[in-house]
Write a protein that binds this DNA or RNA. Structure first.
Length: 115
DNA sequence: ACACTGACCACTG
DNA sequence: CCAGTGGCCAGTG
């Protein structure tokens, strides 16, 4: 499943695929996903892709935060508190819209899905 | 058809 | 060390 680079899929599709693979209780960053997809500078696009998901249940956008562990996308959720709530429910400590011990819960696709 | 923007990140000066 | 800017893709005005 980790051969997205091989396949010429749409960026959005690849982003969705990676996000879907994020295990519960873990979080990753836009940049990490972009880097894994081989598009380092497209971190912005990753967030955009999430926006395109709107509210797809299969795409846990709440597990995707920025490099600082900040819940930058919470504003785009149905309810701003929903993002932090979902993370907290999975065991990820969130305080003041920021993931505590971010490095500890960070899930890097380039490492976890390492080939 | 052009330009700007957007849930970002890393490199320069 | 803080500030500025470039870069990537796609959608919208």
């Amino acid at each position: 499943m980790a051969h997205f680079s091989r396949v010429k899929e749409n960026f959005f599709t690849m982003v969705y695929a990676v996000v879907k693979l994020i295990p519960p209780g873990r979080v990753t960053s836009y940049g990490a996903i972009a880097a894994y997809l081989g598009a380092k500078g497209s971190a912005r696009m990753v967030g955009w892709a999430m926006n395109a998901t709107h509210n797809l249940p299969d795409v846990p956008a709440h597990r995707v935060v920025n490099r600082q562990g900040l819940l930058t996308g919470k504003h785009h959720f149905a309810a701003p508190e929903e993002m932090a709530g979902l993370l907290a429910a999975e065991g990820v400590p969130v305080k003041d819209d920021r993931v505590q011990e971010f490095s500890k819960f960070f899930w890097d696709p380039a490492v976890e899905l390492a080939l």
